[in-house]
Write a protein that binds this DNA or RNA. Structure first.
Lengths: 128, 128
DNA sequence: TTTGATTTACGAAGTCCTTCGTATATACTT
DNA sequence: AAGTATATACGAAGGACTTCGTAAATCAAA
């Protein structure tokens, strides 16, 4: 029975998760190549971080071949949810709606996005 | 001209900022008492953290009396904005609207809040 | 086969964050 | 005045995070 009380990923770990969410299961080499497209990072740095993430339970790996294949254990949506909840609690006094209002007010949204949000609100109001 | 490139506050620093935003300028004793209402924290721990925050430019202090009085240099709204932007960049691929949609969909909102958000959207649509 | 490339494992350095003990100075109380 | 309480300053320990060097094993190429 897997323990689902996984730790919140750090910034560096989040970068690796993004890559694995995009690529699916991948080797250290593949992840490091993807990270290297954005910034300079040593191969063993990426390796070490991914090994630590396995220890933490954030990643799992297949070691049946010489080149180990890693995959994300945590889902992107769940991770986003945890980080969101964390920010709401820490900086918005627990009010997710305060966060929504500030995000809406300070970031440019396209008309399509605004329509999508309106539709979502309609649905929420019906559920009440 | 003050340099406004202030660092992102840590979790512990954010707790102290919340207190100072609520109380206004206050002593270490007052801040520590407020923090102690929620969790056990030593007086010198709070003192040290607040001194570090002065070094970083997050707080300013009046040392004209024996008991120094500290105040937040950064505004609550600006800090929220920075943390929000950070989360959007790190976990939502830069899309603030993806964040809004996830927050709306996964947190309970009161009808009043939904009305407020709808009104905000109406205003945004007129500005387009 | 020998050489070079790739991969994993291990450990250690450096930084940042949190926490607290101790020393020193100042104010208050009796 | 003596002793107690309160405040600041300083340093250091411990943990977490990031980074990388080096060693050992495996594979590929000359």
């Amino acid at each position: 029975m897997a323990n689902k009380n996984l730790p919140r990923p750090t910034e560096g770990e989040l970068e690796i998760l993004q890559v694995l969410w995009a690529l699916g299961p991948a080797s250290v080499r593949q992840v490091n190549d993807a990270l290297s497209a954005n910034r300079s990072v040593g191969y063993t740095t990426t390796l070490k971080l991914m090994q630590i993430m396995v220890d933490k339970g954030l990643l799992a790996r297949d070691t049946s071949e010489r080149t180990h294949i890693y995959r994300a254990v945590v889902a992107e949506r769940d991770t986003r949810q945890n980080l969101l909840q964390n920010l709401v609690d820490q900086a918005f006094g627990g009010s997710a709606m305060d966060l929504v209002i500030q995000a809406l007010g300070s970031h440019r949204a396209t008309p399509e996005e605004l329509e999508e949000i309106k539709a979502l609100i309609e649905r929420l109001e019906k559920d009440e």
